[in-house]
Every structure is written in C-alpha cells, then in structure tokens.
C-alpha cells in the first residue's frame, strides 16, 4: 500500500516535472527535434543551421487558424519568407481522435486545399515537440535565428480575435521579428501572449 502510494506520488511528480519543463526562453537555444512531414520525410531543426526557421503550430479545425488561412494571410507570409530562404515548418500536435489530427494523406490534402506554402507540414501526434516548446495555442509561433537561438515566441499578430477583418489593422509580430532580425536590429517584441485554440494534445 505504502509502496503503491509512493510510486503514484513519484509518477505524479515526474509527470509534473516533465510538463513543468520550462518554456524555452527567447534568447536561449531553441530545443532540437526531428519529425516526419506529410510526405514521410524527416526534418531536424539541426538541418537548418544557418537559416531562419519559423515554427507554426497548426490545427485546420481551429477558427483562429482558419482566420489566417481562409484570408490567405498565412500562405502569403509563408510565400514571402520561404522566398527569402527562411524555413517555415508548420507543426500539427493534435492527438489521434482529436480535432486537427491529420494522417499523412489528410495532411497532403490539407496542403493542397489551402494552397499552403510552408516548407513542410510536420506531424507531431504524440505532442512531444509541442511540449518541448511549451506550445499552447494554434496558431502559436516561434522564430529561430541562423545560430539556432530562439528570437520570437508568441502570437502571430497583435489582435487576438477570430475575425479575419482584424488582420489588416494588426501588427504581425512574426513578420516584424524576421524583418528586424534580418536587418541586424533587435526584435521589438520578442515575446507576446499567444492566442487561439488550445492545442488538442493527447490525454
């Protein structure tokens, strides 16, 4: 009985410790990872040393994600920056059976339907990478600089609504961070409060 309680406590504590793993801090090295994309190809963060990398947490069912895709805002950004040699990784951490979970085929269909322009759509059904980054929202955005340092973490823009009409009047933090970093300037807003749907992680 006592041992059982102890085991339980220890399990609870280690789980808590796992989840309580601190969110990666802006200015610190971005946690490394390796994930398969919708075509089955492996991508590691380490492969992209020397390039800016954008991480975008994704759930096609989430109205906040839809806000930026149905308005072509996200695809526009993806196109603009991949055109400037930026690696754009869209990551889906929805667990199987939950909203936003995509099989490889569904993912490819989604890319075609929405004309997504990301470098790759990575599948993270066990949520490991999502937890590594302490990602909580879709969309939740991160920018990694060529040295592997995290330079932005947070929302896509300054207006936390699901209304596409607000995009025009908002400040896109990801765009600003990339442009400032590329110009050698410090990032004005390196951290913001992400907004959107909660990521549909496994239990």
């Amino acid at each position: 009985m006592k041992t059982k309680l102890l085991t339980l406590t220890l399990t609870a504590m280690s789980t808590a410790a796992l989840f309580a793993a601190e969110a990666p801090k802006v200015g610190a090295p971005a946690p490394g990872f390796s994930l398969s994309d919708s075509g089955g190809k492996k991508h590691s963060l380490g492969d992209f040393k020397g390039k800016y990398v954008v991480l975008e947490w994704f759930n096609p069912g989430c109205p906040f994600v839809q806000k930026h895709y149905k308005s072509d805002n996200m695809q526009g950004l993806q196109k603009q920056f991949t055109g400037k040699d930026v690696v754009w990784l869209t990551i889906d951490s929805s667990a199987p059976g939950k909203e936003g979970y995509l099989t490889a085929d569904e993912a490819n269909k989604q890319i075609a339907d929405w004309k997504m322009k990301a470098t790759a759509l990575l599948l993270d059904p066990d949520g490991k990478v999502g937890h590594e980054y302490a990602a909580t929202n879709t969309p939740h955005m991160y920018v990694v600089d060529p040295s592997g340092k995290l330079i932005y973490s947070g929302a896509i823009d300054s207006k936390p609504t699901a209304n596409p009409d607000d995009i025009a009047s908002s400040t896109n933090y990801v765009k600003v961070a990339l442009e400032e970093a590329m110009a050698g300037k410090p990032v004005t807003t390196p951290t913001s409060r992400a907004y959107g749907c909660s990521i549909k992680y496994a239990q």
Binding site: C62, P63, K98, E99, A162, N163, G196, C197, S198, K200
Partner: peptide, 10 residues
C-alpha cells in the same frame, strides 16, 4: 465569445 470543448468556436 469563444466557446470550447474539444474544439473551439467563436
């Protein structure tokens, strides 16, 4: 408002 269960709907 935003109302959520397993999914979120504004």
């Amino acid at each position: 408002w935003l109302v959520c269960e397993k999914i979120c709907i504004p």
